[in-house]
Design a protein around this nucleic acid. Structure first.
Length: 586
RNA sequence: GCAUUCGUAGCUCAACUGGAUAGAGCUUCUGACUUCGGAUCAGAAGGUUACAGGUUCAAAUCCUGUCGAAUGCACCA
């Protein structure tokens, strides 16, 4: 709907001001329904460039604009806003379309892009913790969203399966492995080994030296150490898969850091050969090339009023590469393998400097791909407790993700049991699973990703406010209507008459679904979609209070059933794009 | 010290990236035919968008400064 108006408006602007750029001529929903349904403020900008009276310019554009087939006569308001009011008949046609096979209020993109999304990235031998949920939920939602819009999406779990921690782990594995607890909880046991040996190494330099030697043996291909390392990866992956199974998250590829080991030496050589990196204090580092404004340059930092080097290490003094090197090799592999238009990294905000350096170094390494492969660091804030500090258990441990999901389901089960004690237990368990996991994910997706947010069970599982259970409840109510309506619920797309204010309000919200999808995808912010779904659920609740469905008859009943059906479809699809399931009953 | 990101109602968060009178939920108060699922809805109260300047027809949003917070700054990722 807004796209149609926008195209018409662009055409009118082109006729009135042939030299004007049309990229800013956009149509947006009105912030306040009193102004209308859609607005454009583009004329004000165009008038300003030409030093014209904006209201006069708007009048001139309107003379070339004919949208009588879908809108009332557009109005000029305020400083030069154009306001559009949609005709109910046009709205009825718009909402009939998905019932006849059209996409659900969105348009697939005209030019699909190839998008690699790198997210989740747990570390081998460490249980996934609460911090992983945000990357996982965000990355999965972005993948689903972009796929739905028609892009070619490739998801890659860049797990941490290589690095110095394996020296310590191997010492622990060889000296104090508890095979029984390895059977029951492999990640827990490996975590215990790691902590135990770390403590021992702090107290005894001999242990640290032993760890260093085990690492060297692993890196030089010692069969025993390689086997232990492989076991640790396999055991970890089993537990990762269990969590991903619960979360409903799938990856196209799981290419861990070790996958790139064979390339690292060559990457370092190439960077040195091209003068991008050089030796410094025994290590090999990337320094500034000095072309950027110092403030923008990720390899410069101000010290005592002077700009000083802030290099990125790509090879340590001991000859080993590190994560910057791996990330460069990874980019090279991704380009060679998929030729992506975009690569999206979903990590916490603490890695901003690393990615600025990585992107800069990559562009110097492969300047020819500067435009061809766009790199995005989609970062997010941390999850905190009531005190504003990172969320920890009472004893100060990091909170394990499996435990969070367990508790969410337990709490949801208690609620389901108290609200619906007559349902069989198996069904209440299933409700608890869908509600619990959905609540945890939604709590991560609905705030602006860049802000820290306070973890709260009560808030995420509440049936009020912007939560997953509230949206799932709205869906369940809709399904209940159709259970009651039974076989008489045949929907007639040709018999839609929108009259009641809450019918119109709901219909207008429905047709904006695509707008929220596009905003969420283009800004990598699923919270735009969350907000839309919450507002949709609110509009539906209002409609549902004021417009009886099953007690009405004829065209009115058909119209209201259509609105219920489409609201249900959008809620289900929208939640699905967020990786959240819905229930027929809850 | 420098950099990044922030500072919005008592609390937790929004605000479609420069648009019109800054919105929700929680909390408090008042209402809604024994209810198409009341796990809901309607209404009231609550704001100098940290502070001070500036740019603009228009600023929570952009620029400058001050105060405060989180995070990061060479061999962990």
């Amino acid at each position: 709907m807004h796209i149609y108006i926008q195209q018409k408006l662009q055409e009118a602007v082109r006729q009135t001001f042939p030299d004007a750029s049309l990229t800013n001529v956009v149509v947006r929903p009105c912030p306040d329904p009193r102004f209308g349904d859609y607005q454009s403020n583009a004329i004000m900008g165009i008038a300003k460039e030409r030093k014209l009276n904006p209201r006069q310019a708007a009048t001139d554009v309107l003379a070339h604009l004919d949208v009588t087939d879908c809108c009332e006569t557009p109005e000029i308001a305020g400083a030069g806003f154009l306001n559009f009011r949609v005709k109910p008949e046009a709205l009825a046609r718009a909402i009939a379309a998905p019932l006849e096979g059209a996409p659900l209020f969105f348009q697939p993109v005209a030019k699909p892009r190839t998008i690699v999304i790198d997210f989740s990235s747990p570390n081998v031998a460490k249980p996934m913790h609460i911090g992983h949920i945000r990357s996982t939920a965000l990355g999965d939602a972005l993948a689903r969203l972009n796929r739905k819009l028609g892009h070619r999406v490739i998801t890659d779990n860049h797990i941490g399966d290589w690095g110095t921690q394996f020296g310590l782990l191997t010492v622990g594995w060889k000296s104090q492995l508890d095979r029984a607890s390895l059977e029951t909880d492999a990640l827990g046991e490996m975590e215990r080994l790691y902590k135990s040996v770390t403590a021992a190494a702090d107290a005894d330099p001999g242990v640290r030296e032993a760890a260093r030697q085990e690492l060297v043996k692993l890196q030089s291909g010692d069969p025993t150490n390689l086997e232990i390392w492989g076991r640790m990866i396999d055991l970890s992956q089993v537990q990762f898969d269990e969590i991903y199974g619960r979360l409903g998250v799938q990856f196209d590829h799981t290419l861990g850091e070790s996958f790139y080991n064979p390339e690292l030496k060559r990457v370092v050589q190439e960077l040195v050969g091209k003068g991008i990196a050089r030796e410094s204090q025994g290590a090999v580092c990337v320094f500034s090339e000095g072309v950027l404004n110092p403030k923008e340059d990720p390899f410069l930092v101000q010290k005592d009023g002077e700009w000083s080097p802030n290099p990125a290490l790509i090879q340590k003094a001991d000859g080993a590469a590190n994560y910057a090197t791996t990330d460069l090799a990874t980019l090279e592999y991704r380009w060679n393998t998929w030729q992506p238009d975009d690569v999206i990294y979903v990590t916490d905000g603490r890695q901003q400097l690393h990615f600025r350096q990585l992107f800069n170094a990559w562009q110097r390494w492969h300047p020819e791909l500067r435009e061809g492969m766009q790199l995005h660091h989609v970062w997010f804030g941390s999850i905190t407790g009531d005190d504003g500090k990172p969320y920890k258990t009472r004893s100060g441990e990091t909170v394990k993700l499996a435990g969070v999901l367990d508790e969410a389901q337990e709490r949801a089960f208690a609620v389901a049991s108290s609200k619906n004690p007559d349902l069989p237990e198996a069904q209440r368990r299933e409700i608890a699973r869908v509600v619990g996991v959905g609540a945890v994910k939604y709590a991560d997706l609905s705030p602006n990703r860049q802000s820290d947010y306070v973890f709260s069970w009560d808030k995420m599982l509440s049936l009020q406010g912007n939560t997953a259970p509230y949206l799932q409840y709205a869906y369940a109510r809709i399904r209940s209507v159709f259970r009651k309506a039974g076989a008489e619920a045949g929907l007639n797309p040709g018999l839609i008459q929108l009259r009641h204010a809450d019918e119109l309000g709901l219909a207008k919200r429905l047709v904006r679904f695509g707008l929220s999808m596009e905003a969420a995808a283009s800004e990598h912010r699923p919270n735009y979609l969350c907000l839309y779904l919450y507002e949709l659920a609110g509009d539906f609740a209002r409609f549902y209070e004021s417009c009886p469905v099953l007690k009405s008859e004829g065209a009115e009943r058909n119209t209201r059933l259509v609105l219920c059906e489409l609201t249900g479809r959008v809620l289900k699809e929208g939640l699905n794009l967020l990786g959240i399931e819905v229930l027929e009953q809850m």
